[in-house]
Simulated scan of single mutants.
Amino acid sequence: MPHTAGRSLPDPRSVVTGPLDLAVRVDEALAVQAVAFGLTDDEIGIRRHIVLRHMASPGARALGAATEEGRLVGFVYGMPNDRSQWWSTVVEPYLRRHGCQDWLDDTFVITELHVHPAFQHRGIGRELITRLTDAATEPRSLLSALDLDSPARALYRSLGYRDLARRVQFPSAPQPYAVMGAWLPLARA
């Protein structure tokens, strides 16, 4: 195993990706998201209800990445976009300003993608998002990400996502987001 600052890093070959019953493993997934994204206990409680509601939506799908022992270390989920859902109603005016509002139609939305920090930078996030979108019947994909230069945004750009709107303010989110879109299938390295 490679070493960083005297600490062993997990072997990415010991991680298996596949279908995830996110409604059953929601607490494990949110524990990964809490570490990866820095969520408070209150935010975890709110997101739990959101995830469970999303997973009841038509076409919602999830994949997980787990160690050989079954420990969940990453997950992704998404669904076909529905303009009546909260996310779409928030991003629509921003997309309209840039002439991109048609991206809300016939699109698969990546709702969440998170990998535990100890397992990041090993291709797990890339595998999760490409496998999920490969199964989509829609011709394109949308997602939102913090509007920062970050490893996540670099990953999305390498997959073919481009900024459609920036400085998107979600109510209750202190930092602005970027809405990114890509034609499917996603680009391969």
Rank of each mutant, 00 (worst) to 15 (best):
H3G: 08
H3C: 08
T4S: 06
T4I: 09
A5N: 12
R7Y: 02
S8V: 10
L9M: 12
D11H: 07
D11Y: 05
D11F: 05
P12R: 04
R13A: 15
V15T: 02
L20V: 09
L22E: 03
R25Q: 12
V26K: 01
V26M: 05
D27I: 09
A29N: 03
A29M: 06
L30C: 14
L30S: 09
Q33E: 15
Q33S: 14
A34V: 11
V35N: 09
T40G: 06
T40F: 10
D41S: 11
E43R: 14
E43V: 07
I46S: 13
R48F: 06
H49I: 04
I50D: 03
R53C: 05
R53K: 12
H54L: 13
H54M: 10
M55T: 08
M55Q: 14
A56T: 09
S57I: 03
P58C: 11
P58Y: 06
A60R: 02
A62M: 09
L63F: 07
G64R: 01
T67C: 08
T67S: 06
G70W: 03
G70Y: 04
G70Q: 07
G70F: 03
R71T: 04
R71V: 01
L72D: 04
V73N: 00
V73Q: 00
G74L: 00
G78W: 00
P80C: 10
P80G: 13
D82Y: 04
R83C: 04
S84R: 06
W86E: 08
S88A: 14
T89W: 04
E92H: 07
P93F: 12
L95D: 03
R97D: 14
Q101T: 05
D102C: 08
W103N: 01
D106K: 07
I110E: 04
E112R: 05
L113W: 11
H114S: 14
V115R: 02
P117M: 11
A118S: 12
Q120N: 10
H121R: 15
R122S: 04
G123T: 09
I124G: 01
G125L: 05
R126H: 13
E127P: 05
L128V: 08
L128T: 03
I129K: 01
T130Y: 12
T130N: 10
R131W: 08
T133Q: 03
D134G: 14
E138I: 11
S141H: 03
S141D: 05
L142D: 00
L142W: 00
S144P: 00
L146C: 13
L146P: 03
L146N: 12
D147K: 10
D149R: 14
D149W: 06
P151H: 13
A152Q: 05
A152K: 04
R153I: 13
A154V: 13
R157S: 15
L159A: 11
G160A: 08
G160H: 05
Y161V: 05
R162L: 13
L164F: 12
F170C: 07
S172C: 10
S172V: 15
A173R: 14
P176V: 02
Y177P: 00
Y177H: 10
A178S: 14
A178L: 12
V179W: 02
A182M: 07
W183G: 10
W183K: 10
L184D: 02
P185F: 09
P185K: 09
A189R: 14
